[in-house]
């Protein structure tokens, strides 16, 4: 059976992680599936503006960076109950479709298969969301480079809506209660759906197995290559720079 690389980066600084993310896409080490756990942080989508999206005075204790793919803010609170994953795959029109929505659907299928295993009513909602009973539980973002795709996404195990609103650039007091209830209706997380806290590693292991089944491969644990490490080093200043984050 074909072997693809698997890496678990563990708890990371998101600036380092976004540099490694780009390095895996632009390196040459074959298809890769990886996990990481972000510390308290905010990752802006490629087309977002920090001062438009965020109340920057409220974000002083957050690490903020930007990723190379579009989409919205990936917000991580200090509960660290989020599974963040990345997939780099060669677009072959089979396992990784050329069609953008088709390829989102394929990769998001790993999350859906995982959630279904827990008895949840998970589905793909185009363009890039996974839902449980029509509530968003996972956001995903994709970019492409020289015939390869990079998809990042997050599976919420727990989520602090109040904290997200506190740092967002929305009029506060006046709409706070209304916002919280409307977000609660549109968003959900695994702990809430299951009514209990499941072990994060257990869910990650199940995701790995569902990935192997869906792509018909065996995941082999590996590390970054020397070339990827070099590339990461050269990309790091960008992810730390104000020019990139606050452009």
């Amino acid at each position: 059976m074909e072997e693809w690389r698997f890496i678990d980066f563990g708890l990371v600084d998101i600036r380092d992680m976004m540099a490694m993310d780009e390095a895996i896409l632009k390196g040459d080490e074959g298809n890769t599936f990886f996990f990481w756990t972000p510390r308290k942080s905010i990752i802006l989508g490629y087309f977002q503006k920090a001062d438009v999206e965020l109340d920057l005075n409220q974000c002083k204790d957050y690490t903020i960076t930007r990723r190379i793919s579009g989409g919205g803010i990936a917000f991580s609170d200090d509960r660290c109950r989020q599974i963040n994953y990345g997939v780099v795959g060669t677009i072959d029109n089979d396992r990784f479709p050329l069609d953008i929505i088709g390829s989102y659907k394929q990769v998001c299928g790993v999350l859906i298969d995982t959630l279904i295993e827990y008895g949840l009513n998970a589905a793909f909602r185009p363009i890039n969301d996974v839902t449980v009973d029509s509530k968003k539980i996972s956001g995903n973002a994709q970019t492409r480079w020289e015939g390869k795709l990079l998809q990042n996404g997050t599976l919420l195990l727990d989520f602090d809506i109040e904290e997200m609103l506190r740092i967002s650039n929305i009029p506060k007091e006046k709409f706070m209660d209304k916002k919280i209830s409307s977000i609660r209706e549109g968003l959900t997380w695994v702990d809430r759906e299951l009514g209990e806290q499941r072990n994060m590693e257990e869910i990650q292991n199940l995701m790995k197995r569902k990935f192997e089944e869906r792509f018909n491969v065996r995941l082999k644990t590996g590390t970054l290559s020397a070339k990827e490490k070099e590339l990461t080093k050269s990309l790091l200043p960008k992810y730390h720079s104000d020019e990139w984050v606050y452009r």
């Binding site: 087309f47 977002q48 503006k49 793919s69 579009g70 989409g71 919205g72 363009i127 890039n128 970019t143």
Partner: peptide, 30 residues
């Protein structure tokens, strides 16, 4: 359907002088 688009525009005599667009949409090539 693909995301929220936020625009700020300044005009002079009916001509766009300055424009900023941002949001959580997707576009390839970026």
């Amino acid at each position: 359907k693909g995301g929220l688009i936020r625009s700020f525009v300044k005009t002079e005599n009916g001509i766009i002088k300055d424009i900023s667009i941002s949001g959580d949409f997707f576009m390839f090539p970026e």
